[in-house]
Design a protein around this nucleic acid. Structure first.
Length: 471
RNA sequence: GCUCCUAUCGUCUAGUGGUUAGGACGCUGGCCUCUCACGCCGGUAACAGGGGUUCAAAUCCCCUUGGGAGUACCA
């Protein structure tokens, strides 16, 4: 039998990292076993579902590269089917109409809570024969004895007593079916073999199995993956910074970094940390997934992102970097080859945003010197080496403006002046970059170009003289 | 409240009765070095508590405590 899994988000917000991980696990499990991965949009809550959310989810999935084989299916397109099932349950006496007013239900709940009981519908309408033309909801007649046993792929055996459950509503008074009914009908109709979802659904599982059995279907296998918590161990929310997958993209994270981070949240393979999507597919084992919730740690995500920026094809990174440079008002077409810039800078940035920020100097003169750097390196003693550098560099032909010659020039100036290389290199670096950190000077100068280099050295010399005059 | 799930370094995890409790991020010492990174070498730090079972428990059982979820005409 072909393995079939599904990701079934409800479009009431963006695709967040917890949902993305659930989707990833579901995707990996299907791919690992040569099965099919299905996307289903659970939009039966007409009030809260939006088209924007659907788009955000689709966009997030596409960015991560989690391709689905079937779908997206929309539950709102399947109301006829749900009603057909509900009518069938009604006809078999496995469901019934109920017109209990909200006030009665609320009062009952309060009484039960006060008596330290679990709030449950008391089944008042179970044996009443209501007029279908009057407003009503449909409730599922849940078995009231016995228990439901679930052999969860992640948690092992879980048992629930039927007497803890009550008769849940499967169709609202407005005629719209509810989640616990639709999910069961769809999973059965779509021949889902493995339901992989967040563990917030554990408590729904026995109800769904009961409905499934009433329909004469065999339940699928279940795997409930734990939730993702915020940095501080509390429930993940906006307060913890980015939670939406697309927001990570906008902040300069690579999809492979986020996927790698998410897969290691709850799953591991020996001592290994780096996994491509293909490697995950090859090695993933749902039974190996951790049972406990995991806290999201941005530091580790940053480390992975830096790793991937560093090891990816610089041409691809260059392409992805363009919009971030654009955000800084820079068009890299008007300067050094962006791929060369990426090759020089990749090891220095945790995100593409940072990469753009530390590379801006290649394409335009910086605004101000970094305070500490100027104070330390652009002092009067730096004037002589800078002047000498300016002369020597000016003498270089444009054709000689390349790393080897440039490095040689800087070394020669240091020797001539009898100075440590650092006394020459650092003032030059601050003069050209504006800060005390950059790639090797040979590369840095070659990227910046002759004209801008000389211009910036002049600017630094003026800065030094101005500073001395003020003392 | 009730039901269910859950518990190894700060964080992510390895571990399935016998280990000096391993790795990774972070932090930190050093090497490399024209700076910053990268890289390399080293250090820091954990079995929530209490009872059992066993020759032997991080591993099995029970209780407590902590964390999470559900308890809707949300999904």
């Amino acid at each position: 039998m072909t393995i079939r899994t599904r990701f079934a988000p409800s479009p009431t917000g963006y695709l967040h990292v917890g949902g993305a991980r659930t989707a990833l696990f579901s995707y990996l499990f299907a791919r690992r076993h040569g099965g099919r991965f299905i996307l289903r949009i659970e939009d039966t809550d007409l009030e809260r579902s939006t088209a924007e959310s659907v788009n955000a989810i689709l966009e997030g999935m596409a960015w991560l590269g989690l391709e689905y084989d079937e779908g997206p299916f929309y539950q709102t397109h399947r109301f006829d089917r749900y009603n057909q099932v509900i009518d069938e349950l009604l006809a078999k006496g496995l469901a019934y109409r109920c017109d209990c007013p909200k006030e009665r239900l609320d009062a009952m709940r309060e009484e039960q809570m006060a008596a330290k009981l679990k709030p449950r519908y008391d089944g008042l309408c179970r044996h009443r024969d209501l007029d279908p033309s009057q407003p009503h909801v449909i409730r599922f007649r849940n078995p009231d004895t016995g228990q439901v046993v679930v052999d969860d792929l992640i948690r092992g055996r879980m048992a629930f007593d039927n007497r803890e459950l009550d008769d849940l509503i499967i169709r609202r008074s407005d005629g719209a079916p509810t989640y616990n009914l639709t999910v069961v009908v769809d999973d059965a109709d779509m021949a889902i073999t493995h339901v992989i979802r967040g563990d917030d659904h554990i408590n729904n599982t026995p109800r769904q199995i009961n409905i499934l059995r009433a329909l004469g279907k065999e339940p699928p296998h279940y795997a409930h993956v734990p939730m993702i918590l915020g940095d501080d161990g509390s429930r993940l929310s906006k307060r913890h910074g980015a939670v939406s997958v697309v927001a990570y993209r906008d902040q300069g994270y690579l999809p492979e970094a986020l996927l790698n981070y998410l897969v290691r949240l709850g799953w591991s393979h020996r001592d290994r940390e780096i996994f491509s999507l293909e490697e995950m597919v090859e090695l993933f084992d749902i039974g190996q997934v951790n049972k406990a919730a995991a806290a999201f740690n941005t530091d580790k995500l940053d480390w992975l992102n830096q790793h991937y920026i560093q090891h990816a094809d610089p041409r691809r990174i260059a392409h992805l970097l363009r919009p971030h440079l654009g955000d800084l008002g820079i068009d890299p077409a008007e300067g050094a080859d962006l791929t060369a810039v990426v090759a020089a800078q990749a090891a220095r940035a945790k995100t593409l945003v940072e990469l753009a920020r530390i590379s801006a100097f290649v394409y335009r003169d910086f605004e101000d010197y970094e305070e500490g750097a100027a104070k330390k390196h652009l002092r009067p003693v730096a004037a002589e080496p800078l002047e000498r550098l300016r002369d020597r560099l000016d003498m270089l032909a444009l054709a000689d403006w390349e790393p080897v010659t440039l490095e040689h020039t800087v070394h020669r100036v240091a020797e001539e002046l009898g100075l440590n290389l650092g006394k020459v290199a650092q003032p030059l670096r601050v003069a050209v970059v504006g800060r005390a950190a950059s790639p090797g000077l040979d590369i840095t100068l070659s990227l910046v170009g002759k004209e801008a280099t000389l211009r910036r050295i002049d600017r630094a010399l003026a800065y030094i003289r101005q500073g001395s005059a003020g003392v």
